[in-house]
């Protein structure tokens, strides 16, 4: 015997589910993201100002700032704080470069028990790897277009 819902299309079922899905707390999420993301950026600015005061130029200052922020993200991941922060902050802790560090460190730590070569070594970039791949791709494409326009 067949039930009428078996004949439903995915589209009909999706509409049927709409009323049952819990609502996302959009305003709360947005506020959390704003404050945490803003704080990471303000911290970055503070570190940047420090390096400039130390005499680094703008380019090196930005690189050194990135390095410090990556360390902060990595350390907070190591001591088990960053995932708790991310649960509330969402994009606020994902978008800053500390989120990139979190993706690298979380993967590296998670797969440590599978060994240092195929665990830590290979799995470190399971989540952050695509960022490097697409970052590299887009920079080369941009460089090529720029080169062609120059000549």
């Amino acid at each position: 015997m067949a039930f009428s819902f078996e004949q439903w299309t995915p589209k009909v079922y999706r509409r049927f589910l709409q009323s049952m899905k819990p609502k996302r707390t959009i305003a709360k999420n947005a506020l959390w993201a704003f404050f945490v993301g803003g704080l990471f950026c303000a911290l970055g600015q503070g570190i940047h100002n420090f390096w400039r005061w130390q005499g680094l130029n703008a380019f090196d200052g930005a690189a050194a700032t990135a390095a410090i922020l990556v360390f902060i993200g990595a350390f907070l991941t190591g001591i088990g704080v960053y995932d708790q922060l991310g649960k509330h902050a969402g994009a606020g802790s994902l978008v800053p470069i500390t989120g990139f560090a979190n993706a690298v460190v979380a993967s590296a730590m998670e797969f440590k028990r599978e060994g240092y070569v195929f665990g830590v070594g290979a799995k470190m970039f399971t989540i952050a790897g695509p960022v490097i791949v697409y970052g590299c791709l887009s920079s080369v494409v941009i460089g090529l277009i720029y080169f062609l326009r120059m000549h």
């Binding site: 690189a63 990135a66 990556v70 990139f100 560090a101 440590k112 470190m124």
Partner: peptide, 19 residues
């Protein structure tokens, strides 16, 4: 600089801490 620090600290943290 950013990528290298991510690798270095990723590795270090994995050595030092367990999930």
């Amino acid at each position: 600089v950013g990528v290298a620090t991510a690798v270095i600290f990723g590795y270090t943290m994995a050595v030092l801490f367990d999930p």
